[in-house]
Structure formats: C-alpha cells, structure tokens
Amino acid sequence: MAEFVLVAGAWLGSSAWDEVVAPLRAAGHGVHALTLSGLAEKRGVPAGQQTHVQDIVDEVERHDLRGVVLVGHSYAGIPVGQAAERIGDRLSRVVFVDSEVPVDGGSFASGWWQGQAAFEAQLADNGGDWAPASVADVDGQGLTDEQIARLLGGATPHPGATLTEPAVLSRPLGELPATYIKCLLDGPEPNDTVASLLTSDRWRLVTMDTGHWPMFSQPAELARILLAEAA
C-alpha cells in the first residue's frame, strides 16, 4: 500500500484533488490531499517557499507515512521536489504533474517565461500576491464550463514570497525516483530543465492528452496513472 501526498499548484488547496482521491482510496492506498500555507482555507497564514516545503515534510512526519508517493502539480513541484529529498527513505516515488521542478538557488519567478522582473511586477500590482487565473487563462486546456467553475471557484491569491524565494537542494534531483506527467494541451514538450532530468535512468515520462489541470479535466485518467506509478 502506498501513501499518496497530493499537492496542487498555485491558487489551489486540497479540494482540487477531490475527484482523484476516491479512486486512489478505492484501490486500498492512503491519500493525503494537502493545502499549503496561505492558500484556500489557510489563506492569511504567512508563507514563503520553505514554509511550503515544511508543510509537506510535516504532513509526512506527523502521520508517520512510509512508502510515500509525493505528487506535485504546477508550482507545487518546486516544494514537493525539495520535500522529496528531505523525507529520506520514507519516499517511494515523486510524481511531477505538468509542474515546475526545483533548481538549486532558483525560484518559480526566476523561471518565468517573460522574465523574473515581469513576474515580480505582476506581484507588486496585486499587493504582493499572485492573482488567481481568469477564464481566459484556462481556455484551451480541455476543461468543461463546469470544471472551469470548480477550478476558479476554489482559487485564492497565491503568496508572492513562495514564488520568489530560492529553492535549496542537497543533491541532484535526477537521483530521485521520479515520474514527470506532461499534459500535451499545455505544450508538447517538457521544458529544458525537465528534459535534462529525464535523461536520468531514475526518471520516466508519461503524457496525458489534456491540459494543465488534469485533476479537473481527466481525474480518472490521472488516478489511473498515479496508481500505475505506485505499483
């Protein structure tokens, strides 16, 4: 039996995984969907990036979890990748769902496609937080109107410090047992950092024919992949 720890990306809390949790539990696994500090029902709790790393480590240690499959979506790949190193032999596998990955000394902002300055200007314009996605931002991502309503209805501003603080890695990320799930509607190829990591014999690539939020658009298929990766 695996213990899944599920961490959604920017703006989202544990409820993002609601339709993934049931099939994982039905298969006999433990499931722990986690809301990071400062988001959803924890909105207002001060948080930097290392707060989010500690949130994940604390969840694993508090429940004394073993055989852990850490799952990080989007932004959450950055704290999940760091936490995966820190939980040691409790880790079975880390799964990155169309996510960013931590780069030692780098941040989410430093990898922003328009440049770090442009991203930090967005934060400054929104009182230091990253404003939630709009309907236009999720267009073309394989979501129904109902799924879009659920996604955006559960979104809250994302604490800016978690996006600008640097990651801290103690060893190469390629040494971790890892799976990267690439959602093809969000781009056909992983970014260069992920492509380099996928040359490791401990990493493997899985693709999904959907957009960036598969826990909403294809939850049953995502659960099937996660179950396969835990086997």
Rank of each mutant, 00 (worst) to 15 (best):
P79D: 05
S107P: 10
G154W: 01
L70T: 09
R62W: 09
N126V: 00
R66I: 00
L222Q: 07
G88C: 05
Q49S: 03
R224M: 06
A155G: 00
W203R: 09
A231K: 12
E59N: 07
V135G: 02
G160W: 02
E3C: 13
E221N: 12
I78G: 01
A133N: 09
I56G: 04
D64E: 15
A22W: 04
D64Y: 01
P23E: 03
P177Y: 12
G13L: 10
S134E: 11
S15A: 14
R224Y: 01
A131T: 09
D89L: 02
D192S: 14
L226D: 03
Q141S: 07
A230S: 15
V103I: 14
I87S: 05
H32K: 07
L184I: 09
A136I: 00
R25A: 13
A131N: 04
S92N: 10
H63V: 05
W11K: 03
R204G: 08
L6R: 09
S107H: 08
Q54F: 00
A167G: 13
H52M: 14
D186K: 02
D192W: 00
E41W: 12
A124F: 01
L151G: 01
E221A: 15
V68W: 03
P166N: 10
A117Y: 01
S74P: 09
P188G: 11
S196A: 15
L151I: 07
G160Q: 06
T193P: 00
R202N: 14
P159R: 08
L123D: 03
V53D: 09
V71I: 10
A40S: 15
H158S: 03
A26E: 15
K42Q: 13
A2F: 02
D58W: 07
D192R: 13
D64V: 05
A195V: 01
L39V: 15
T51M: 08
R90Y: 08
L185D: 09
D58K: 13
T193A: 13
H63N: 13
A149G: 01
D58V: 02
L184A: 06
G30N: 09
S99P: 11
V95G: 10
H32F: 13
H63E: 13
V21S: 10
T193G: 02
L12V: 00
L198T: 09
D129H: 10
A121W: 03
V103G: 14
D104F: 05
D58A: 14
L152H: 02
H29G: 05
S196G: 15
K42P: 00
G72S: 07
G160R: 03
P132L: 11
L39A: 04
G128E: 06
P177W: 11
E61W: 06
Q122I: 01
V103D: 06
Q141M: 15
I56C: 08
R66W: 05
A47Y: 04
A133R: 05
L24N: 02
G9F: 04
D145M: 03
A47S: 12
V71Y: 04
L70M: 11
H158D: 03
G140F: 06
P46G: 01
A33V: 02
L143H: 07
P214N: 12
N191A: 00
T162C: 15
L65Q: 07
A26R: 14
D129A: 15
L185M: 14
V94F: 05
G160V: 05
T51D: 14
T210W: 01
R86Q: 15
G9Y: 04
A155Q: 02
D201K: 12
C183F: 08
Q114A: 14
S37L: 04
